[in-house]
Amino acid sequence: MMLLPCPWCGPRNAGEFKYAGEGGARPDPATTTPEEWRRYLYFHANTRGWVTESWYHGAGCRRWLVVERHTLTHEVREVRDAVQVAREGAR
């Protein structure tokens, strides 16, 4: 089992986390089209390499995390609290 370095709790077994996959920006619900919305819902790049993913530390700090992980090596180069990422994005 891989370790995921939680920014709050330190390295923990991946089994403590829920994997929520690659996140995409939510289209404006007022103007979106079915094509655009379903791309948001179902289409992921499934990259062989670095991806940005959401994980939820359900058995720990209960924080949603934004994880940059290499899908081939499982190397994790950055994990940040989702609130921090969302606030930066809103700026």
Partner: peptide, 12 residues
């Protein structure tokens, strides 16, 4: 978890 997801990732 769903509520926390919206609060933490989309409506901080």
């Amino acid at each position: 978890e769903w509520a926390e997801r919206w609060l933490q990732t989309a409506r901080p």
